[in-house]
Amino acid sequence: MNLFYYAAPHTFYPLAGTMARVFYALAVVLGAIGLYIGFFVAPTDAQQGEGYRIIFIHVPTAWMSMFLYVVMAFWAAVGLAFNTRLSAMMAQAIAPTGAWMTFLALWTGALWGKPMWGTWWVWDARLTSELILLFLYLGFMALQAAIDDPRRADRAGAVLAIVGVVNVPIIYFSVQWWNTLHQGASVSLTRSPSMATTMLWGMLVMALAFWMYCLGATLTRVRAIILERERRSDWARDLARGAKAGREAAA
């Protein structure tokens, strides 16, 4: 089988549909298991009481937010280097999910911080870098939205994503340096207490669930992008005609 068979948008479109359904189903199953472990199996934390249970959402979203940026930059770089249309579409499809994960991580972090530290927000190194990551995602999306020509949008976005991914470690370490120089946050996030095994399992299962969700959401979005960009091609028109005929038959 030719490995690049699915690199063409019109062959990838149906495959992405099937894969998205599988990933969504896995996300639901894993999410149900993870939440069950999180709410009913994992013990109450000795120091933090029940409030810590938001960790089962917070940590997976934070992981995904950072991971997705690297994946986005990877596809953007592949698209720029080999001029493959689908790679650029993948990068464009990942960005909103990545931004959403970053936002969720910040939001759940604030919800966690209020009962634990008594404040919604501290200028801790991790929180600040996560906020900057959100800005980087928004910048990428804004740049692509501002350019009408999809080819230029892809390539300009790719340059920005690559510059961003080079800068992420620099930003992360400079923020950490800044944080140690300023009066440090009263609560250290890095000194995590040793975790009960069930908690760890719950977190890992939830991380997998979020992974599956991100894959499903990205593939669904890339399908929409493919259709939008290929709307003048025959296969997309046939598809739209078929869908219309189906609706009329049902009505």
Binding site: G139, L143, A146, A156, N167, S174, W177
Partner: peptide, 25 residues
């Protein structure tokens, strides 16, 4: 990157300011 785009000024600030943070720090 923002050459000749609509609302290039505001877009430029969104793109560039996060990258300026290490220098500021």
């Amino acid at each position: 990157l923002t050459l000749g785009l609509r609302g290039a000024g505001a877009l430029l600030s969104l793109l560039v300011l996060p990258l300026y943070i290490p220098v500021l720090i």
